[in-house]
Design a protein around this nucleic acid. Structure first.
Lengths: 332, 332
DNA sequence: GTGAAAGCGCTAACAA
DNA sequence: TTGTTAGCGCTTTCAC
């Protein structure tokens, strides 16, 4: 059972003091080349690896750890963000502690506390719903916190990176209108969530901009999973005056909408916030709002490292651009 | 700029020694209820949070950190595994350090070393290709390592969790045969990768079992992305004796195959290892091998924690079951 | 039931 | 150029 060698072990083998080993490990200048060589040899022969936890215990030393909390690491949207964060972190020599709140506020708080106990130098969160006033500067004690995808409302202000949700929804609904649609159904995910409400506003703006009046019978809000969206779609399609196209405010909803169309045997053009694979293989034309989720992670991480490097100033909010893309139908 | 309070700060406020605070924080029994109460108050009023790095520095103390290396955290397959690991880790009070090797052996090694420097108690990796003999017990110094999805060949033996790749491929190809197909094309991802070669063996076994002879012209191997698979599909479809169905050894390949079919305007039934969304919305019947990727992560993590709890014995290899599932075509 | 002293592995400050 | 001392925040002796 080999236990990790310490600097003292290396020092003994090299015939120097621990401090000299430390100097070599940290590439400090004032070390005799010959001494350095002896130490390097000893390090290699013992397979020494510095204990980062011990190092970061000293005041003024960094832990080189950052922490992340999203709703669900297994969700491709969140994991793309995680990927972006990790990528930038690695460039700076940081490792990423990642965790899933399962969208539960209590869990999110526990995770943030756990990450802080482990001395992360920075936090990045995709906040769950709920009150975040517990995020006081006392609790965070100088650890910068970056908010991704949905701003935290009320209380302390944080650096934030979001998508241009409203603009994207406006653009994609406008595309349907340009294609001649006047009755555009909409199925919204959780409309209490920031992104959902922003996208709904984009929908309304697009109608208004085209001189169209929103119609209650075409709007279905507050659906969580795909199966709820599927039922809502059936309702929409079976009513007396059905829509001629449908806008889904996210891709999980879109999948439910497609199932609904399949069930009803009525295929309508689909618009959707979020790109998804095989959109070009469907029996309906699909228009999506596409964007780079990993870029959200990268932007957030870059802002975080700017803070760590001493950038001060008022909290920043960055909106990332999105793009509309149309996929043709497949004719089988 | 608030800095984190220490146990000494709490001790001062509560009028006790640091050791007593430690006792309270660790729920040790022999503390006077009144003293305990005073300490609890002080902890609350200061917002004290124990410094885990300092704690884990003492010999015999755990870091409550585990580390993971996969090819790409942003890939849904890997992130599902990460999710499973994280879930089990959380139950045990552990945080997860996750990182992406980008399938580069050198990067993988660097990440493993970085994780060890940060005192992870266990490692879980989805290994990149290449030689892993550097993973010596000297390097790992008692840190258990779990291998996921693809066994490490040669050298040290590790606990391993994989899918029943061969059986799954056998089953899904057999399903095509039962449906009457005699000429089944196959497009393989990277056939040097363990999963690819296992799945190919399953394909061959299924043919053999049905008394069919493999045909070179129906087999295309070694394709990386979807676009390579797309070209291979076009070749397959345009030859004199085309197949009547195609087996794709993973879902990225399957997407390429579908593009190829679209390009050729020839739609054939598709079989595929890996489930994927919207498989029931395609102009061809799709049969997939489905499984729970998160379960791989959970199984691996459970095995890891068993080791941490002292389970000894020869390295274990666990194969997780897979299932065949058929989606009907959509008729638009 | 409580506290004082020592030390985990490392590095900043100071000596030599 | 190199070594000694001290201490980061915590917990383990071992006294009291």
């Amino acid at each position: 059972m080999p236990s990790r060698p310490t600097m003292h072990d290396v020092a003994r083998v090299a015939g120097v003091s621990a401090k000299t080993v430390s100097r070599v490990v940290n590439d400090e200048p004032r070390v005799d080349p010959l001494t350095r060589e002896r130490v390097v040899q000893a390090i290699a022969s013992l397979g020494f690896q510095r204990n980062e936890q011990a190092r970061s215990l000293r005041p003024g030393q960094r832990s080189t750890l950052i922490g992340m909390v999203t709703g669900d690491l297994g969700n491709p949207f969140y994991s793309a963000i995680a990927r972006g964060i990790e990528e930038v972190g690695r460039l700076h020599g940081y490792l990423l502690l990642s965790s899933s709140s399962e969208e539960q506020p209590a869990r999110e708080r526990q995770l943030i506390e756990a990450l802080l106990r482990h001395n992360v130098e920075g936090l990045l969160i995709v906040p769950a719903a709920g009150d975040h006033r517990y995020l006081t500067s006392a609790m965070l004690s100088d650890v910068p916190l970056l908010v991704i995808d949905r701003p935290i409302t009320g209380g302390h202000e944080f650096d934030t990176v979001v998508l241009e949700n409203r603009q994207g929804a406006f653009d994609v609904v406008s595309a349907l209108i340009r294609a001649g649609h006047r009755r555009i159904g909409v199925i919204d995910g959780d409309s209490e969530v920031y992104t959902g409400s922003e996208r709904m506003q984009g929908y309304f703006s697009a109608l208004e901009h085209a001189g169209l009046t929103p119609e209650v019978s075409l709007i279905r809000r507050g659906f969580h999973g795909g199966s709820q969206a599927e039922r809502a779609t059936l309702e929409l399609l079976h009513q007396a005056q059905p829509p001629t196209a449908i806008f889904a405010t996210n891709n999980r909803i879109a999948v439910g909408v497609l199932s609904g169309m399949k069930g009803a045997g009525k295929w309508l053009p689909l618009a959707c916030f979020d790109d998804f694979e095989l959109a070009d293989m469907l029996p309906v034309p699909v228009t999506v709002v596409t964007y780079d989720a990993a870029e959200m992670g990268r932007s957030a991480a870059e802002l975080l490292f700017a803070r760590l490097k001493g950038f001060t100033g008022a909290p920043v909010t960055k909106s990332l651009p999105v793009q509309v893309r149309t996929y043709p139908t497949v004719h089988s």
